[in-house]
């Protein structure tokens, strides 16, 4: 298979990037997209040129390290899979492919196709965890969780934190990511004590990272390799409204008579 690639090259976050044209031959259908890039890099290194930098780790769709927008779509063609799971059989001989980094103001380019996604880590740090030490594993029947709720929490927790939702959103909003993290804890008993403080601090951190707001296009849900539902965004909105408007900040004060 012979392909023409337009690959984004950028020296660092400050530098101006540009698309670079590469021709590559001898690609087999069974290759993954990243293996195709490996092949291209080998060729570039042999020619004494600078290899293309891109992120990858497990290469089996679990870690969330690989990024890349292939033809403008984060993680490329195919539903519910990461870039590393994209096989070259998704393309035809002679295709032109555009490869760009995940684009977002909150994801500065490190080099070429590699972006810094630590904004997502900071959102997790702000509240995506349970502070209270839960001690030894409790007897399972002492904290009942109904099966459908457990499954829903599981769906939310499937988020691998790859950032495709932020990259796919025209507003670069981190709503799907944040809502998945807020919901998988908020749905389970262990997450209840901090449910309302968590949603506030995570939403505020998300905005401090410079991410936009949701315009309900649904691009994030489409690009998500874990197929996380927009329903979690609605759920986060609900929790955030309750947290900021209904739940009291001062829980211990007396109510005075005028």
């Amino acid at each position: 298979m012979k392909l023409t690639l337009h690959i984004w090259r950028q020296a660092n976050a400050q530098a101006k990037g540009k698309l670079e044209r590469h021709e590559i031959d001898g690609i087999s259908e069974e290759m993954s997209f990243l293996e195709m890039l490996d092949l291209l890099n080998e060729k570039l290194v042999t020619e004494g040129k600078d290899a293309i930098t891109f992120d990858s780790d497990c290469r089996e769709g679990i870690c969330g390290a690989c990024s890349l927008a292939i033809n403008g779509r984060p993680h490329g063609p195919g539903q519910g899979c990461t870039t590393c799971q994209v096989r070259m059989r998704s393309f035809k001989d002679g295709d032109e492919i555009w490869v760009e980094p995940f684009r977002s103001g909150s994801f500065p380019v490190v080099k070429d196709l590699m972006v810094d996604r630590s904004a997502l880590d900071r959102i997790i740090q702000s509240g995506g965890h349970i502070n209270v030490h839960s001690g030894p594993k409790p007897e399972p029947n002492s904290i009942p969780v109904s099966h459908p709720v457990a499954e829903e929490a599981m769906d939310a927790s499937a988020c691998i934190g790859c950032g495709a939702c932020v990259a796919a959103c025209p507003n670069s909003a981190g709503m799907l990511f944040t809502s998945a993290k807020v919901s998988h804890l908020g749905l389970l008993p262990q997450g209840q004590p901090e449910r309302y403080s968590r949603v506030q601090s995570m939403v505020h951190q998300m905005e401090d990272e410079g991410m936009g707001g949701c315009t309900n296009h649904g691009e994030c849900q489409d690009a998500c390799p874990m197929e996380i539902s927009l329903a979690f965004i609605s759920r986060m909105n609900r929790d955030y409204m309750k947290a900021t408007l209904i739940e009291p900040d001062q829980r211990r004060g007396k109510l005075s008579n005028q």
């Binding site: 033809n71 684009r103 410079g210």
Partner: peptide, 9 residues
Amino acid sequence: KARPEQYRH
């Protein structure tokens, strides 16, 4: 402001 650089494709 959230996306200063647009996708080329």
